[in-house]
């Protein structure tokens, strides 16, 4: 078949072609966290060591001693992602290995709630690690419980429709910026080129580097699996999850400037977890998103 149809052009791949993640892992259909891991390992290469606390990725990877990744993995306790990575880095330095990048890879529960004190400690000491938080906005691995990353209005099993979450999402990037660490970035699975570029930039910086990655979860968000990328892209385009980076806790730079900001309405309507929201409540979400965007524009100058 391929011989019959003429090739139109030479294929150009926009992200690295090597594949450090293999097939056969245990993620749900349309998982965003899997894509985030794939892009990260494409950017960092094989000289990477991962520390994974209890999160979706502790399951996706496969049962011991099988693994779907080409890099060594250390499964640690829920609250210790950052401190374990610190220890691994110190151990590697003891044996004279200065090339290996140590990555702590935690979900939003392990970053926003449970792992926050270990992360804060590591950031304060400015340990030479990359901390990646892939944010699917609830404890998805244990059955969709509310976390402090869950946004306003979302349904979860612990915030049912009658008593949905009324508090906004915790602003983790501002918390990390207050630690004055050298590099903080947000990334989305819908923009892999931007993701890989930032990850390569972070690899060259010494000190604690923090990534906040938006990873849609069709199971927990009650959305269709084919909409994962679309949802992530919409979240970037309507400033629900803007792409920006912070250097030394002060210099904010917006990577994707939005000329016409889209309304959040379409984004919320695609997800079953926001189905119960009335027009007044959606207007409240829009007002909150607008206020956050204005604040970011002011910070970026």
């Amino acid at each position: 078949m391929s011989t019959e149809i003429k090739k139109q052009k030479k294929m150009t791949l926009t992200i690295p072609a090597d594949e450090p993640m293999a097939c056969g892992h245990l993620a749900c259909q349309g998982c965003g966290a899997t894509l985030a891991m794939r892009y990260m390992l494409k950017a960092l290469g094989q000289r990477t060591a991962l520390c994974i606390p209890a999160c979706c990725w502790a399951v996706i990877d496969g049962p011991y001693p099988y693994s779907s990744l080409d890099v060594p993995i250390y499964h640690c306790a829920f609250e210790t992602a950052a401190s374990t990575a610190t220890g691994v880095k110190a151990g590697l330095e003891m044996v004279g290995d200065k090339e290996t990048t140590v990555v702590a890879w935690a979900g939003d529960g392990g970053t926003f709630d449970i792992g926050l004190q270990a992360l804060s400690g590591a950031a304060e000491r400015n340990e030479d690690i990359i901390y990646v938080c892939y944010d699917n906005e609830a404890y998805m691995n244990t059955g969709i419980q509310r976390s402090s990353a869950t946004p306003y209005g979302a349904w979860t099993t612990t915030t049912p429709v009658k008593h949905f979450k009324t508090r906004p999402k915790k602003d983790i990037v501002s918390i990390m910026a207050a630690h004055r660490i050298p590099y903080i970035a947000t990334a989305s699975v819908s923009h892999p080129e931007d993701f890989v570029k930032k990850m390569k930039k972070a690899k060259g910086i010494k000190g604690t580097r923090f990534f906040h990655v938006y990873a849609p979860c069709p199971t927990g968000w009650k959305s269709r699996p084919e909409d994962s990328i679309k949802l992530a892209r919409m979240a970037v385009q309507n400033a629900y999850f803007p792409l920006f980076e912070v250097e030394d806790g002060e210099n904010y730079a917006i990577n994707l400037k939005l000329k016409d900001k889209k309304p959040v309405d379409d984004y919320l309507r695609l997800q079953g977890r926001f189905r119960h929201l009335t027009d007044v409540q959606i207007a409240a979400v829009q007002a909150e998103v607008d206020a956050r965007w204005e604040r970011l524009l002011k910070l970026a100058g």
């Binding site: 293999a22 097939c23 056969g24 892992h25 245990l26 990877d61 496969g62 011991y64 001693p65 099988y66 693994s67 779907s68 990744l69 080409d70 890099v71 060594p72 993995i73 250390y74 499964h75």
Partner: peptide, 11 residues
């Protein structure tokens, strides 16, 4: 340590 020795492609 878990590494590529025992891979998951049989699944």
């Amino acid at each position: 340590l878990i590494c590529s020795v025992g891979h998951q492609t049989h699944n």
